[in-house]
Computed example of a mutant assay.
Amino acid sequence: MTSPDSPTPWNAPFDGDLTDDLALALRLADEADRVSMQRFDAPDLDIETKADATYVTEADLATERAIRALLEAERPGDGVFGEEFGSSGDAVRQWIIDPIDGTSNYLKGIPMWATLIALVVDGVPRVGVVSQPALARRWWGATGLGAWTTTPAGEERRISVSDVSSLDGASVSFQSIAQWDEAGRSDALLRLSRAVWRDRGYGDAWPYMLLAEGRLEFVAEFDVKEYDIAAHVPIILEAGGRFTDIEGVESVASRSSLATNGVLHDDFLALLQGASS
């Protein structure tokens, strides 16, 4: 099922060449890594609380500014939507960025955070980069160009989802028990945990990339914004998986996400919907 805002299925071929856009996204990630790592684990890091009670650091702001500056120089006609400075420009080709996904980890000196960069064309996420510089890891993908990662040793390799085909053999990740409870889905989470082989709450961007690498079969969240998940979509799709919201709709704007290895997607949807009914 596709989103009303994006009638084109996410797995539809792209009529064009995304090679240059992907190359730019990787350069954006290079610049983001340079800026964000300068202040990581700094004892005098400036931290503020936003109106929604979440944290923002000087590094979040500086990293998004750096990404926007490069986009203004390289793609002045494209739109930009970022977590810290909102949206601007044309939404037909829109770069969606989260300068530091996992700010709570960043400000604690925990290396589980990432910069998320996506290019959405006509409502479809087409390019995605997830960069985790504190762990020397990066993942990227674009429609028709595959899904890739760099290992800590600096080697590039193509990645793909697992071929696990039964729920009782699946390993799953969720953001937190509290998040599912606040969404009124604690019954679904309990039923999920009873149906699968293994469940863990890895959190933030990393479990999506573990799924793309074939190490997990399911990742789901609630209360997510476009910039939290748009970068994951092209990577997971190019790795052979599926990505929808919790109701099975292809949308990054419906405030929930469900990523799977593809073969189990409908089974997970049925399980979650049955648990919440």
Rank of each mutant, 00 (worst) to 15 (best):
T2N: 12
T2R: 07
D5Q: 06
P7E: 08
P9Q: 05
D15F: 05
D15P: 01
D17I: 03
D17E: 11
L18N: 04
D20W: 00
D20V: 05
D21M: 01
A29P: 08
E31M: 06
A32Y: 08
A32F: 12
V35K: 00
S36M: 15
Q38S: 04
R39I: 06
F40Y: 15
D41A: 15
D41S: 15
P43Q: 12
P43L: 14
L45A: 05
D46V: 15
I47R: 01
E48F: 10
T49D: 07
A53H: 13
A53P: 01
T63R: 10
R68K: 08
V80C: 11
G82W: 07
E84G: 03
S88Y: 02
V92R: 15
I97A: 07
D101V: 03
T103H: 06
T103D: 06
S104K: 15
N105C: 04
K108W: 02
G109P: 02
I110Y: 11
W113D: 10
A114M: 04
T115D: 00
S131R: 04
S131L: 00
Q132D: 00
L135G: 00
R137W: 13
W140I: 08
A142W: 06
T143I: 05
G146D: 10
E156M: 09
I159F: 10
S165R: 08
A170V: 13
S173H: 13
Q175N: 09
S176G: 04
A183K: 04
L190M: 02
A195S: 14
V196M: 12
W197G: 08
D199Y: 03
Y202L: 14
D204C: 12
A205P: 01
Y208P: 00
Y208Q: 02
A212V: 12
A212M: 05
G214Q: 14
K225V: 13
A231C: 05
A231Y: 03
A231E: 04
H232Q: 15
A239V: 03
G240T: 05
F243Q: 04
E247R: 12
E247K: 07
A253V: 13
V263E: 12
H265N: 00
D267C: 00
L269G: 04
L271W: 07
A275N: 09
A275Q: 03
S276I: 10
